[in-house]
Design a protein around this nucleic acid. Structure first.
Length: 499
RNA sequence: GCUCGUAUAGUGUAGUGGCCCAUCAUGAAGGAUUCUCAUUCCUUCGACCCGGAUUCAAAUUCCGGUACGAGCACCA
């Protein structure tokens, strides 16, 4: 045995080391090559609309890592498209606010791509001068043939002088959109067709489609495309880690080729897969924008929409969203998640502080016979007596209960009394709880009419009812007894969150 | 068509050769507490895509299928 140990000691000492018990990893996976205080991450949406549920993933994951590594988070507006998915002016203000609400701190830097065009031009010219980029006058159709047949396009071998001359023609208005693009020279023999001499800058008709930002407007005719703009900006900002959807994997490969030309080191990258929500299916910011403009929805915060503002309005907390996305992690698997998982996180966040409130749907008034007190006090929260009492007024000896509860004869008004119902009259049979009859919620007859708004199968459903008198401020998350959680959006209007 | 990626319970997720007849959460079912169909607590259910190979040992490595997703835009 000793001899054996000696042999192992010499040959393979690692086998003698005691293995540590594996522990379940919690939270996000380890960030590769991260140095405390030196991590720079970014979240780069197109401001063609406010943030949606999907954007929240990018924000939550990147901000969580930034916090964990004591690093920085950049919020970057990738607003370089004025034609296909043009920026929405209001989004520039709304996005930073929504981001701060969600992640709990202000992004350390905010960058507008549209204000950094000079930097992109500088690098474009550098690229042309060094000969790893060229101005291509082929049409998209024509180049597609070259790309598929691995053939070099004739523009590829233009001299630097010609390229600069063509570049100037792009900028001075000699060329019009469609006449020319700047391409990065990679290799037409590359296995992956997506990487072959990819386009870096193109022209846009900014007279017809001016950029909505003040001072930008029609100032530029040539605009960088995502892969180029993002690559240069990531370098200029010192981004160390890029975490984004795996649909941008080829983008990483394209950008890595550009980085090699420039002699830069590409950041560490991580990807997540596609997410679908059972209840929502597919949606896009552009489509939502069209639908809102067409009047199909009330606005970006319409409770039917999967935008951050709508979720917030409906009572989903930032904390629940953070837990939800962190729990899904950073896997490259395409997933389809049910909303119940988000709701379960939200319940954990709000239940302890949500005051209980009584909302009676389809109310019917019944008068009470027997010994009826003037009022009844019920705890605001069953598990937290410090939240005080709710007082139900019984001055005229009548209450509202829900029509569906009025069908049964023997039941119990919660925290009040047993009753025996006969039509619109109920006999009080006992104030003590003496049997296991069902318990129903109710309100006093002095309560006002109220509306409960729910989203069911993508449609708004409004239910009328009687709401317990209250003085909670707008925005309070409450729990309607026997119904579910909701948000008070007006004195007499509640939007249902979930149950 | 070419290229890239992913495949663990209903849904997510942990797991990088032995600790795994597989973790945690959610879900479902049952129960306890509770004057809410809420909260809290307990119990139970349920999975390594298929086929080969390597190895004493594979969820984990390799090869081949299959399925799903993405890129090949003068969108981001």
């Amino acid at each position: 045995m000793d001899a054996l140990i000696e042999i192992l000691q010499n040959e393979a000492p690692h086998l003698l080391l005691k293995r540590e018990k594996k522990e379940r990893r919690t939270g996000l996976p380890e960030l590769a090559n991260a140095v405390k205080g030196k991590v720079v991450l970014r979240f780069a949406p197109n401001p063609n609309g406010p943030l949606s549920f999907g954007h929240a993933r990018g924000l939550v994951i990147n901000s969580t890592y930034a916090k964990q590594w004591d690093g920085e988070l950049i919020l970057r507006f990738d607003d370089t498209d004025t034609t296909v998915k043009p920026p929405l002016p209001s989004a520039y203000k709304q996005i930073p606010q929504e981001a701060e609400w969600l992640i709990g701190f202000k992004p350390h830097r905010i960058v507008f791509a549209s204000e950094r065009i000079a930097h992109y031009y500088e690098h474009a010219v550098l690229m042309l001068n060094r000969g790893f980029g060229y101005v291509c006058q082929c049409s998209g159709e024509a180049f597609k043939v070259f790309r598929e047949s691995k053939t070099e396009c004739p523009c590829r071998n233009n001299s630097v002088e010609i390229n600069i001359e063509l570049w100037n023609k792009m900028n001075d208005g000699t060329f019009v959109p469609g006449d020319a693009v700047v391409r990065v020279k990679t290799d037409m023999e590359l296995k992956n067709p997506a990487l072959r001499d990819w386009p870096a800058l193109r022209m846009q008709d900014t007279e017809k489609h001016p950029h909505p930002r003040e001072g930008i407007g029609s100032k530029y005719k040539v605009w960088p495309l995502l892969d180029f703009q993002s690559a240069v900006e990531d370098y200029l900002q010192g981004v160390t880690h890029i975490i984004r959807g795996k649909d941008l994997m080829d983008s990483t490969r394209k950008q890595t080729l550009l980085y090699q030309h420039f002699g830069w080191k590409y950041p560490e990258t991580m990807y997540w897969g596609r997410v679908k929500v059972h209840e929502w299916g597919g949606f896009s910011t552009s489509q939502m924008r069209r639908d809102i403009e067409a009047g199909l929805f009330e606005g970006w915060n319409d409770p039917r929409l999967p935008t951050l503002s709508a979720l917030k309005e409906r009572g989903i907390t930032a904390s629940a969203l953070r837990h939800f996305w962190v729990e899904l992690g950073v896997t490259q698997k395409d997933i389809s998640v049910p909303l119940s998982s988000l709701y379960s996180h939200n319940t954990k966040v709000i239940d302890a502080t949500a005051p209980r409130i009584s909302f009676v749907k389809n109310p019917v008034k019944i008068s009470l016979q027997g010994d009826c007190p003037d009022n009844i006090s019920i705890a605001t929260h069953p598990n937290d007596k410090s939240m005080g009492q709710r007082v139900f007024n019984l001055n005229d000896n009548s209450v509202y209960i829900s029509a569906e509860d009025a069908n049964q004869t023997d039941t119990r008004l919660k925290d009040f009394c047993n009753i025996s119902i006969d039509g619109s009259i109920a006999q009080i049979t006992s104030t003590e709880r003496i049997d296991k009859r069902s318990i129903i919620h109710w309100v006093g007859s002095n309560c006002e009419d109220a509306e409960l708004v729910m989203v069911e199968d993508g449609k708004l459903v409004s239910t009328q009812g009687k709401l317990e008198n209250h003085d909670y401020p707008i925005g309070t998350a409450v729990q309607m007894e026997r119904i579910g959680y909701g948000i008070i959006v007006a004195k007499n209007k509640i939007v249902f969150t979930h149950n």
